[in-house]
Design a protein around this nucleic acid. Structure first.
Length: 484
RNA sequence: GGCGCGUUCGUCUAGCGGUUAGGACACCGCCCUCUCAAGGCGGAGAUCACGGGUUCGAAUCCCGUACGCGCUACCA
């Protein structure tokens, strides 16, 4: 590649980072990493009313949580600082001067009411509905006088009369053509002097030397307008890659009704950043059509824009759950123990001090839960019995495994055998319990299930012998006697 | 209304003129097994939105139609 790649993710801080934005960020990041380019984070906060510092902070937090780092942007700085549009007004002012000077921008004095009325009228007919260019005919001296007199005005782009159809070089959709007739003289600078999105984003992309614009599909129709601005500024047009949307199961916009939408909400629901990263990356991109587990490192190495799919995707929470489980199982016991700790603490099962005092015990918890947890939120409930002094028996479980006479005899025998057991470990416990069955005339399973319910409270639990071994012997036997 | 984009198993996708249309999740069955899982094996599931072309041959190329979505703002 002749010039080095520079891409940017430019969220507007009008809300949290949601899953679609996360994917856009991931693709920009991965593309930059894969081709040795530069990834820039820019905050597009031209909408002063809806942008907040808290949203900005949350977006940065979410990106970091996902493992996305940026080469230029907030907190890290860079040669084109500031990376907030509200701090770049001088740049927009200069760009407007350039356009005034070369005749590609002109003042418009039409009121909003007039414009709305015209638009309504135009839309009832057929044909384009763009601005009718009323003010384009005003002589420059007259316009200057009106501005001097303090008349409110906006600045509009003057679409060149001789500009033919506009071709958008889109890597995802191939070349798409927008008829010149559909281009209207849109607003560049508002009455209050602030730039509109279509102006500010182009000025910044030009200033920052952006070579590839990778963003949501909703901007595709804005692209020809932006190309006109690049041209008016005398700047080369970047290449584009427009990503299709991510929808909820009903084909509608992903909303809270479907479950989590913001990255932080997914985190709170027990999803791992590597799982979210992997799942979202594969919603619209594929390595080879076969591989489903793709690490950050792999994506940063293998990502390519030409394998982005064109069609919109429906977010499948079940597949995400599966993938999250894959990542949970992949962790080493020590790693899982460390990462499940906050969840154990939050649910009041333990404290950081207890973990520090006996890390090995916590490490040995990991294998018990790893292959039966889909989300981090599944862990605390499943392990709670290991932390309590006594457990409440689930009635349905007790009915199944403790109600019969043979079950009660089995439990009594088990309590007796385990109470005097000398080797309180997995093998010792298993042997002791298995040996009871023949004498009682029942299957080993009857013994196991009775003990399981008495000790864990439920007929469904982590593996019995490991669980017992992790409990204090007298505590375990006490629970069995209590259940009789 | 105008302009643009999209359409392969329920879902995510592979496919880029000749394949029994492949994989993954979910689903079903069997195996393993101290419960639940995890894992292994197997199964069912796609007339490639529809209709016309082009071609010896089309999911793949072209043109329509339908449906969905986006833009059409002094939102981004």
């Amino acid at each position: 590649m002749p010039t080095t790649v520079r891409v940017r993710f430019a969220p507007s801080p009008t809300g949290a980072l949601h899953i679609g934005g996360a994917r856009t960020a991931i693709y920009n990041w991965a593309f930059a990493r894969a081709v040795g380019g530069t990834f820039i984070l820019r905050i597009d906060d031209t909408d002063a009313d809806r942008s907040t510092a808290e949203n900005t902070a949350q977006i940065l937090r979410s990106l970091s949580w996902l493992g996305i780092d940026w080469d230029e942007g907030p907190e890290v700085g860079g040669p084109y600082a500031p990376y907030f549009q509200t701090g770049r007004s001088e740049s927009y002012r200069r760009a407007l001067e350039t356009m005034k000077a070369n005749g590609t921008a002109y003042p418009c004095f039409c009121s909003s009411e007039e414009l709305v009325a015209k638009r309504e009228a135009a839309r009832s007919g057929d044909g384009p509905t763009g601005y009718d260019r009323t003010c384009r005919g005003i002589h420059s001296a007259t316009a200057a006088a009106r501005i001097e007199a303090g008349e409110p005005h906006v600045w509009r782009l003057a679409v060149p009369d001789d500009r033919g159809d506009i071709f958008v070089d889109d890597i995802v959709r191939d070349e798409t053509v927008f008829p010149a007739s559909a281009m209207d003289d849109f607003v560049l600078v508002r009455t209050d002097g602030t730039p509109t999105y279509n102006f500010a984003t182009v000025v910044d992309d030009a200033d920052m030397g952006i070579t590839h614009v990778i963003r949501g599909d909703d901007h595709l129709s804005n692209t020809p307008r932006q190309i006109l601005v690049f041209e008016a500024l005398g700047h080369a047009t970047p290449r584009f890659a427009h990503l299709s949307m991510i929808w909820g199961a009903d084909g509608k916009k992903l909303s809270k009704r479907h479950g989590a939408t913001s990255v932080e909400a997914f985190r709170d629901e027990g999803y791992l950043p590597e799982a979210i990263f992997n799942y979202v990356a594969l919603l619209g991109w594929s390595l080879d059509g076969e591989t489903t587990i793709v690490s950050r490192e792999t994506l940063a190495r293998e990502f390519s824009l030409d394998r982005i799919s064109k069609n919109p995707a429906i977010f499948d929470f079940e597949k995400l759950d599966w993938m999250n489980g894959v990542y949970i199982r992949e962790m080493s016991p020590a790693e899982l123990a460390k990462r499940m700790l906050p969840w154990l603490i939050d649910t009041g099962l333990t404290t950081a001090e207890d973990y520090t005092s006996r890390p090995e015990w916590y490490h040995s918890l990991a294998p018990l839960i790893a292959e039966r947890a889909k989300r981090m939120t599944d862990i605390a409930p499943a392990l709670a019995f290991l932390f309590a002094d006594e457990v409440a028996l689930d009635p349905a479980s007790a009915e199944k495994a403790l109600a019969s006479d043979e079950a009660r005899q089995a439990l009594a025998a088990a309590a007796n055998a385990l109470g005097t057991l000398e080797m309180w470990d997995h093998d010792g416990i298993e042997t002791a319990l298995r040996e009871l069955a023949p004498g009682l005339g029942v299957k080993p399973k009857v013994v196991f299930q009775a003990v399981r319910v008495a000790v864990t409270g439920s007929i469904v639990s982590p593996p019995l012998f490991e669980s017992l071994a992790l409990l204090d012997q007298q505590d375990a036997v006490g629970r069995m006697l209590a259940a009789l």
